[in-house]
Design a binder for these strands. Structure first.
Lengths: 339, 339
DNA sequence: CTGAAAGCGCTTACAG
DNA sequence: CTGAAAGCGCTTACAG
């Protein structure tokens, strides 16, 4: 079971090892008949070029590090699937790092040792420090679904791909105002996640335009159990309940739906309207039929590839892409107000 | 932004490059003060050993290929998360390949070029041929949540980790019989998936023991939309409907639940009982409250690591591990029969 | 304990 | 078009 190398093939085909290498290098010049001979020999021996050795000499691993943290939110599996497939088609591969919370530093060391050509950080909760470390190490980074925290002096700036979160938040705010809601509550994700802050800002834009205050505010940390707790607190006082709840993502919106119905005995949208963000697969299930804002994963993945390859190609300026998102109206917002 | 190598560190610390290498090789002998000097120099230069170069010489990449296909079934994200974290702790990393259906051959070539130390195939739908190719190439493979198809002559045998699917299926069959169901239907996953076949066999064991026939049978292909279609067909005739439906996994069971309620106006478990397999996070959500069989992901991941490392260490015999699974009784099976 | 040297399996100028 | 040679950044016997 010895590994077969280019040398073995060269010997069998009676050519130099260089010729074998050229045969497997797209665009290199080899005479047609030589190539033929080499390919036959390679097939006979079951030869496959060693990507590790190639990486060492070309100083390109064609590996992209993908850092994620919470796959229970179904948005991320969808992202993984699309991103992996897209990168595979470009001849790149994905080294996956799962890092809950902030043990991320060890992860970083690992990533760097593996000489990845670039990194996609697709997690709203990872620290910006991590991203900066990578950039300092000279590795292209693209933030996916989040934006860099700006440092004290204007700070580092990292490429990022997001939806137009503020506009999306505004869309929801306008919908809720238009349909006559007056006591609108916000369920934040992580307080320091840009997605959550931007969506909240959009909501507040719409409220301000209508002269309405934000009725109440909870923090669900993008987590199912945390969201449940926050909803319980938000609806504790039966005399002062919100008439609408906008959650920073679908995962929490569904947690809210479950809690409102099963634990608080409320009906949606009769007693309260609920809106999410992402349009995960479950949002379309009849049990939830959740009104939400759709993030265009396909466009986001495309933009990520583009940004990544620009930087790998030497582009130094970081840039950000905002993909438009659209409101998906389903059944969790009451249609007209009785007020 | 030049890469700093062991040579650079050696020069600064005034030692040989070998000494630098030893300092970063656990268990190598270096004098404490030499090590100190080298570590200081390394820190100053921001040196990190190049894992690619190390792999080339040690012929160990410390990379495991993980092949998956359908992440919309929430069981798999959970598996990815656990497996990644476990392997990271062992100093291994995960190169992720997503391959829908059978374009898998290209994927295979990729995997092999990357000199992965082993492969975990965690997908019920991938062909067994793929696994055999890897084994022929001398790469350890562990099948996760499926079992090798035995060839015509007894065929190849590949290590695998599964739940005790047949026993799990029997548990469900016994539960349904015990609670007085008489027209029990089976919703299969993919016809050639061992998980589906084994769970069905277990169900049939229980039915046979009770002298009951399998009332009806549909095929959902482990897919949400397919499962919906199959359920519609299974319940088309109002006069001959099943009184219980056992789906080969939770993903399809939830599809069934949604279809029964939203499209057929049936109540669960009043009109029909529903049972799944996996115990995905959503099964516990109040909207579904799904009775199911829990696969012990933690044990399955542990077994996978063990099997993988045995083979990487030179163990040639393939072996299979069956992890016990337990029935999780929730609200989708009616408690007593009125018959 | 330490250094010089060989070598992992490739790519890529450089001559011819 | 083709081959000999250098070299990517490491590890690891082998002497000392």
């Amino acid at each position: 079971m010895k590994k077969v190398t280019a040398h073995d093939v060269a010997r069998l085909a009676e050519v130099s090892q260089s010729a074998v290498s050229r045969t497997f290098t797209p665009g290199a010049s080899v005479a047609p008949e030589t190539r033929e001979r080499i390919e036959t020999a390679a097939r006979k021996l079951g030869y496959r070029p060693n990507a590790i050795a190639r990486s060492l000499i070309t100083r390109r691993s064609r590996i992209i590090g993908l850092v994620m943290s919470y796959l229970e939110n179904q948005f991320y599996p969808v992202v993984i699937e699309r991103l992996c497939q897209a990168l595979q088609q470009d001849g790149y591969h994905v080294l996956l790092f799962i890092s809950e919370t902030e043990e991320a530093d060890n992860v970083l060391a690992d990533i760097l040792q593996y000489q990845v050509d670039g990194i996609v950080m697709a997690s709203t909760t990872l620290s910006s420090a991590l991203a900066n470390d990578c950039i300092n190490a000279g590795i292209p980074v693209v933030l996916f679904n989040r934006v860099a925290q700006v440092g004290p002096m204007g700070g580092y700036s990292t490429s990022s791909v997001t939806s137009q979160n503020r506009a999306g938040g505004r869309l929801v705010g306008e919908l809720l105002v238009r349909t006559g809601h007056r006591r609108i509550a916000w369920l934040a994700g992580s307080e320091n996640a840009s997605t959550s802050r931007d969506r909240e800002a959009g909501l507040c834009d719409a409220l301000a335009a209508a002269g309405l205050p934000l009725h109440a505010r909870g923090v669900g940390d993008y987590d199912f159990a945390e969201a449940r707790r926050a909803v319980l607190a938000l609806f504790r006082d039966p005399d002062n309940r919100p008439d609408a709840l906008f959650a920073a993502n679908d995962h929490m919106a569904i947690a809210a739906l479950e809690t409102l119905r099963a634990e608080l005995g409320m009906q949606v949208p009769r007693d309260v309207s609920v809106v999410g963000f992402d349009n995960v697969p479950q949002a379309a299930w009849p049990s939830f039929d959740l009104t939400t804002v759709q993030q265009n994963v396909e466009q986001m993945v495309d933009a990520t590839r583009t940004l990544l390859f620009e930087q790998i190609g030497g582009q130094v300026m970081a840039s950000s892409v905002d993909v438009p998102c659209v409101l998906v109206e389903r059944g969790t917002v009451r249609k007209r107000d009785a007020t």
